[in-house]
Design a protein around this nucleic acid. Sequence first.
DNA 1: ATCTGTGAAATGATTCACAGCC
DNA 2: GGCTGTGAATCATTTCACAGAT
Lengths: 209, 209
Amino acid sequence: MDSVEVPEVVVLRLPLYVRALSQLMSESAEVVSSQQLGSLLQMTPAQIRKDLSYFGRFGKQGRGYNVRFLLNELQEILGLDREWRACLVGVGRLGRAIINYPGFHRDNFRIVAAFDGDQSQVGNKIGAFDVQPMSELSETVCDKKITIGIVAVPAQQAQNVINELVENNIKGILNYAPVAANVPMNIVIRNIDPVLSLQSMTFYLRHLT
Amino acid sequence: MDSVEVPEVVVLRLPLYVRALSQLMSESAEVVSSQQLGSLLQMTPAQIRKDLSYFGRFGKQGRGYNVRFLLNELQEILGLDREWRACLVGVGRLGRAIINYPGFHRDNFRIVAAFDGDQSQVGNKIGAFDVQPMSELSETVCDKKITIGIVAVPAQQAQNVINELVENNIKGILNYAPVAANVPMNIVIRNIDPVLSLQSMTFYLRHLT
DNA sequence: ATCTGTGAAATGATTCACAGCC
DNA sequence: GGCTGTGAATCATTTCACAGAT
């Protein structure tokens, strides 16, 4: 219940459980043990049980967890039982790819507006909607009940864009720009940075060939 | 030196240091303290010093770290002092976006081949090269000295594709498919999954509106 | 017999705090 | 005065191991 004392690492793992449970649902599994879930996700059963125990007692001793029930509970805990609306900032190649990526939509994250600081992009049609100028951010965020901003601008502009988003009432930021952006403590930011992933990977590969 | 006992969290942070140092270089900074680096990256100076101490003594007491020198050392530690070649598997929308993403190339990661299991994609031109059938994987990996595989296929096919990559001598995998893939212990895998990021974000946002 | 939920123990990561050097 | 490098202390996370439920 008291989300303040749930370790962040635990929260980061909950979506993995949601995904595994969704898969089990689609396979018509009715019950799953922490053991099975663990081997599906390559984690120890103890960790799964401990993680879940932060939020309640969802299992039955001797049996395991009801798949549908646990999935529902976790979705509610994560706030996934509703639609989330996001705006995209930056409609270059990356931004366009993000808009067209069907994965967000499938999981109830809807991109409902697109902005760009570049005048030459403004007014262009991208998918279903027009690219808007940043000056319309405030109004659109309010009108369309947007809570999440997706940042797909060049590194140099990212911090400014993020500042603008925060000033205009955006609460969560998914940042694709390769920068360690600064945000106020009450804002949640997540960075997507494949180059960083590769650069830590090569540490382990460097002695090959 | 002995990379086995460097904690993985530390390795994951090194690329952040590399990036910050690159930026400092471009601003012609010559020296930087753990303090300054920390405020740039929002980390404690102690953590930075401790992280670096796993690999050597790079700083000068009373002064700090020479930017160029530290950058070079870290790049060498991470194996970034050479080019890494990767192949892409899956040339759908996501795959095409990945090929066109200039960020990899800028940091010396080169995508040098593209594959797709779908016959109708094979032979199409994507950027500079032809889409190849999976049957040519083995030969191409060998000929072009590819060590990294980038997976951009639908979730359902991902594990199979990853298995094929591993069987064909790929040592590192950057996986964009939303699955918890299984790989042998000697293979390094990194997952890029923006939906997971959003789903853990909403935990903190769920009580808004 | 099987599996959860959970305190306690063990392990791991971060931060402190200071000696030593510039 | 300022800063690094690092043991020691603190704090966080994972794993163990078992009582209790089915």
